[in-house]
Write a protein that binds this DNA or RNA. Structure first.
Lengths: 191, 191
DNA sequence: TTGCTAACCGGAATACTATTCCGTATCGTA
DNA sequence: TACGATACGGAATAGTATTCCGGTTAGCAA
C-alpha cells in the first residue's frame, strides 16, 4: 500500500478511523480489481468498502493513483518471493518456482491492463521502476542457478523475463497452454 | 474504410452528401487518432469534420467501431506493401523493407493502444484476424528469401513477427534504437 | 466525564463523455 | 417545382471521475 499514513505537514499519525477506512478501501479495491472484467467504478469500490467516495479521494487523489498503489503492493509481494525461494530451495527449483510465480502474476495483471495503462501514462517511471524490480528479483534466482551450472551462462535476467512475458502477452495463447510453454522455455535455458 | 456505403436493405446507394460526410469524418478521425496523446472525444472529431455527432453515429455505431474501421484500413494499406515490395525488389531487400514498414506501423499504433484495446475487447476476432493478415503478408516476403537461401530456413513467419514486434512493445526501448535492434534481428535471421 | 476542535466522513453537486433521439433541412426524382 | 425519403445537427440522456462542504467523531485536556 502507498500514500499518506501520516499528515504531510505536521507529521501527526492518522486518526484511527481514518487508518481503518483507508485499509478497507484498499482491500475492497484489490478484491474488485482482481475480479476479471469487473471494471469497478469508484462508487462501487466505495460501497464495497462501506465508505463514501470522498474518503477514497482523501487517500488517493485519483483512480489511477489507487490502481498504482495496488499494483505496487502486488509487485512488492511478488518480488519478495524470489529471495524466499532462493533461501528454501535448490537453485534450479528456486528458479522454476519464481518463474511460475511471475507467470501467474503477469496473467492476473493482464485483466487490469487497461487500468494499468492509465496509471503508466500518468507516471511513466512506474513502468521503468517495476521492470527494474522484476529484473532484480529474477537475478536473485538466476545467478545461483548459473553458478551451479544448471542454466546456460549466456542468459541475462532480461532475456529470461522477456521469454516468459511473451507467453502471457501474446493474447492468442489459451491459458491451459501456459504451463506447457513454460516447460519449453525451461528446457531451453538448461545448461 | 469499412461500414455501410449502401443501405443495408434496399441496396440503394448513399446520398451524395452522406458519402461526403462519411469520408470527412473518417479522415478527420484518422488524423486526430494519429496525433500522439490526443485522445479525441467524439465531439472533437465531429467538429474537426464539420459535422454533428449524430452523423458519426449513423456511420459507425460506436467509438470503438470507428477505431476499428481506421485500424482495418491502416492494416490493409500495410499488408498490401508486402506484395508490392516482393514485386519490386530482390528477396532480401523486399524482406527488409517490409520489416521496416511493419516496425513503423506497430510504433505508430502504440499510441492508440488504449483505444484499440477497447475495440479488441468488443470484437476478439479482430485481433485474430489482424494477426493472420500480418502473418500472411510476412510469408509473402519471407518465403522467397528462404528459397533464395538468404534467410535461415527454420524460421517461420510467426517467429519473425514476434521478434520484430518485441522491439516495439517493450516500452523501455527509446525510439532511436529501433533501427539498431532491427539490424540485430536482420543479422540473426541471415542464412 | 465533559467539552472542544482538528481531522474525517458521506454523498450531493460538478464536469466531462459516449450515445440516443427527434424536429428540421436537403437530396434526388417525377 | 413539389414531395418523400434520407440525412443532418445538436440538445437531451446516461454513466463516470472528481470536487466540495455541512455535519460528525476521535482524541485530548481539564
Amino acid at each position: 500500500m502507498s500514500g499518506p499514513e501520516v499528515d504531510a505537514l505536521a507529521g501527526r499519525p492518522m486518526r484511527a478511523d481514518a487508518r481503518r477506512n483507508r485499509q478497507r478501501v484498499f482491500d475492497a479495491a484489490r478484491a474488485l480489481f482482481a475480479t476479471p472484467d469487473s471494471d469497478p467504478s469508484m462508487e462501487q469500490i466505495a460501497r464495497a468498502a462501506g465508505v463514501g467516495v470522498g474518503t477514497m479521494y482523501r487517500n488517493w487523489p485519483s483512480r489511477s493513483a489507487l490502481v498504482e498503489a495496488i499494483y505496487r503492493d502486488d509487485l512488492a509481494g511478488l518480488t519478495a518471493r524470489a529471495a524466499q525461494h532462493r533461501g528454501e530451495h535448490e537453485p534450479w527449483e528456486a528458479l522454476v518456482r519464481w518463474l511460475r510465480d511471475y507467470l501467474s502474476h503477469a496473467r492476473a495483471k493482464r485483466g487490469m491492463l487497461t487500468e494499468l495503462g492509465a496509471a503508466f501514462d500518468a507516471r511513466p517511471e512506474l513502468l521503468t521502476e517495476s521492470r527494474r524490480q522484476v529484473l532484480e528479483a529474477t537475478a536473485i534466482v538466476l545467478a545461483p542457478a548459473q553458478r551451479a551450472g544448471v542454466v546456460r551462462a549466456d542468459l541475462t535476467a532480461a532475456d529470461l523475463v522477456q521469454l516468459v512475458r511473451g507467453i502471457v502477452l501474446s493474447a492468442i495463447v489459451p491459458p491451459d497452454r501456459y504451463a506447457l510453454l513454460l516447460d519449453v522455455v525451461l528446457d531451453g535455458i538448461r545448461a
